[in-house]
């Protein structure tokens, strides 16, 4: 085999492995839409009995769809990369912290939005950094700004609305940009 042919093979395999990168955009779009529905529902039904029930409902629906998709995608991908592992642990830590943050906030009769946005912002910022995808890095900062806004400047009544808007800017728009690049 010619030396130049060897280089071509190695280059083609590098390109091939980029194609095999796990497709993460789906999760950002899915969870973005779910959280926007929940945030807007909370805003419009604020103060109504059981208005909080939209959260477990959207979380359960998102969880089921994510599980089905990840199994299907796992079969298609056939590979595991270091980036996949970092995403898994980052969002795993986010999930656990989210549960605890909501519990702490409810226990202390506080709005959970500042903490939820703070945690989501950190996880999104890390995801953007490891994937070298700037829209998520900016998205992470938008969520952090939303957290500060909810904590200090905006009345609890409007937190659902701020949350929905932050998620739209940080998850949904970057999610669609990422999806476009994954399909190339």
């Amino acid at each position: 085999m010619e030396a130049i042919k060897s280089i071509e093979i190695i280059e083609s395999m590098l390109k091939e492995s980029k194609k095999s990168l796990y497709r993460h955009s789906f999760y950002f779009i899915l969870w973005g839409i779910m959280m926007i529905i929940a945030g807007l529902a909370e805003y419009f039904f604020y103060g109504k009995p059981y208005f909080w029930a939209i959260w477990p409902a959207t979380a359960t629906a998102g969880g089921i769809i994510s599980t089905v998709y990840s199994r299907k995608e796992g079969k298609r991908s056939g590979t595991v990369t270091m980036i996949d592992r970092i995403h898994l642990y980052t969002w795993g830590a986010f999930g656990i912290s989210l549960f605890l943050a909501i519990f702490y906030a409810a226990y202390n009769h506080l709005s959970s939005y500042p903490l939820v946005l703070l945690l989501a912002g950190s996880a999104t910022f890390i995801s953007g950094g490891v994937s070298r995808f700037k829209p998520f890095i900016w998205g992470g900062l938008v969520l952090e700004a939303g957290s500060v806004a909810c904590a200090y400047f905006i009345d609890n009544r409007y937190h659902g609305l701020v949350f929905a808007l932050s998620i739209f800017l940080a998850y949904v728009i970057p999610g669609f940009i990422l999806r476009k690049s994954e399909n190339v």
């Binding site: 093979i9 190695i10 395999m13 095999s20 056939g78 590979t79 595991v80 990369t81 996949d84 592992r85």
Partner: peptide
């Protein structure tokens, strides 16, 4: 060479991949 260079870029890959 194809196998080893592909494996060098991922953590693991299955036989079908």
């Amino acid at each position: 060479l194809r196998i080893i260079s592909f494996l060098a870029t991922v953590e693991r890959a299955d036989f079908n991949k």
